[in-house]
Simulated assay, not measured.
Amino acid sequence: MTKDMDIDFKVNSPLGTEQFIGLLVGSTLGERRPVNDSVCMQGMLDNANLIVSAWQGDQLVGIARSMTDFHYACYLSDLAVHENYQKLGIGKRLQALTQEQLGPLCKLILIAAPAANGYYEQLGYSHNDRCWVKEQATGV
């Protein structure tokens, strides 16, 4: 892929569950998401209130999926760019467009995959070791 390709960025544009799953699988984020559970994946799309997507024609090539109050906190749950489109600035643009939708005091919060720590640091994110995650109990 070349940097002169036409990528269209859209805010809260409809997209299908299969498109979303295909992108996650093609970006390796699918390794850490329930891509075999289409009900869960559809719920992830339906209940996000801010989705910025990147398209080449009708192909979804990137996504920033968030839940936010638009004023104080925005949890960027999924940032994914298809492997064939990485290192072209698409992820950086998805984050910038996400921030443009938010109020001036709103913090962008995410949990990074260990291999991505250096990426976020170079974009101006600060590391916070106070994050806690509680998984749902299974078999209860």
Score class of each variant (00 low, 15 high):
G57C: 02
R33D: 01
G43K: 15
D78R: 04
Y75N: 01
L29T: 11
Y119M: 11
Q56F: 02
C106P: 15
G89C: 11
L97W: 00
C74E: 15
Q86Y: 09
L60G: 06
L29A: 12
D46F: 00
H71Y: 07
Q101E: 14
R93K: 15
D78M: 01
R65H: 11
P104H: 13
Q99E: 15
V61A: 12
L50F: 05
T98W: 06
K87Y: 10
L29K: 12
L105V: 13
D37P: 09
A112W: 12
A64M: 08
E121H: 14
Q86W: 07
R33G: 00
L105I: 09
G43M: 14
T98G: 09
G103N: 15
L88D: 06
K87G: 02
I109S: 05
I51T: 12
S53Y: 02
G22W: 06
Q59W: 05
L60T: 10
I111T: 03
L110C: 03
L108T: 11
G91H: 08
A64T: 03
G118R: 14
A96P: 04
Q101K: 10
E121L: 12
A96T: 10
V61E: 03
L23N: 09
Q86E: 06
A64D: 01
I109Q: 09
T68W: 04
C106V: 14
V61S: 03
S66I: 11
A80H: 08
D69W: 10
E121A: 10
I109E: 03
L76A: 07
N47L: 00
P34M: 03
C40N: 01
D78Y: 04
L50R: 04
L24D: 00
S27N: 09
L60F: 12
D58G: 01
Q101I: 12
